[in-house]
Design a protein around this nucleic acid. Sequence first.
DNA 1: CTTGTGTCCTGTAGGC
DNA 2: TGCCTACAGGACACAA
Length: 269
Amino acid sequence: MLEPELQGRTISDVRVFREDVIAHPRTVRAFIQRLRGRRDIGILALKRRGKYLIIELTEGRQLIVHLRLSGHLALVAKGGETPKYERVRLGLDDGRYLSFVEPRALGRVYCLLLGEKPQSLAGMRAMGREPIEHGFGGGYLAERFRGRRSKVKAVLLDQRVCCGVGNIYSDEALFRAGIRPTRMAANLTRFEVNALARELRRVLNDGIRWCGTTMDDGRYRRPDGREGSFQSRLAVFGLEGHGCRECGSTIRTETVAGRTSHYCPHCQR
DNA sequence: CTTGTGTCCTGTAGGC
DNA sequence: TGCCTACAGGACACAA
């Protein structure tokens, strides 16, 4: 849990090692100024919206982090080893620092002033419902699927439909719901949509319970450096050529919406 | 409006 | 052994 570690701390130092991960404001100088004002900026709380992590700061400011595919946050002890691929560092008043580690440098960091709504975060404001929030269900999903002319996998990856679901969790939810990723979203029965809504919720809750997915080639880490453990509970993702754990059929892949999609040809129809 | 495609980035894996 | 290419992933700009 990162929040109890950060809550009540103030920011004593900001370093940017890679300029292009700062998405807002436009310059690194302005970004640092927002976090190192005349008075020390304090950390109030941590929140999440879809795939964005929101660090609530004093003076109504927000530090927003998107890890994209290979990023993670590391909380480094005083005198601890500097992480490889460190892009941004937030020094804390207790001598520790929060490090934004992102090997592929695709992740982004934003610092917003009170009430600011930059164009570069339009995607965040247009986000759909959270599958794990109260009120998300087959009714909502069916409404969002209506009139869509895309495959269900493509629609699930659209953050405006439901947020926080990426390639791994969409494949896993589709497997659990028994639906092939190539099915047209608008052609799913209400029974199937209900099952999909339920399994999206379950998969995300399981992902949270098992602290995320650290793949062999991936670098995702928890803030204390430990790996997630959901990868050992995956049913189809990354398992092309393996036997399905339910029926033994060989797991297949197919490119849908530009993404490799994994499915069991027997369990999913 | 919707939908599909290319781009960003870099470590890793696989081919020759 | 070493070079080269393809690939992975999420968001977004852009084209159709």
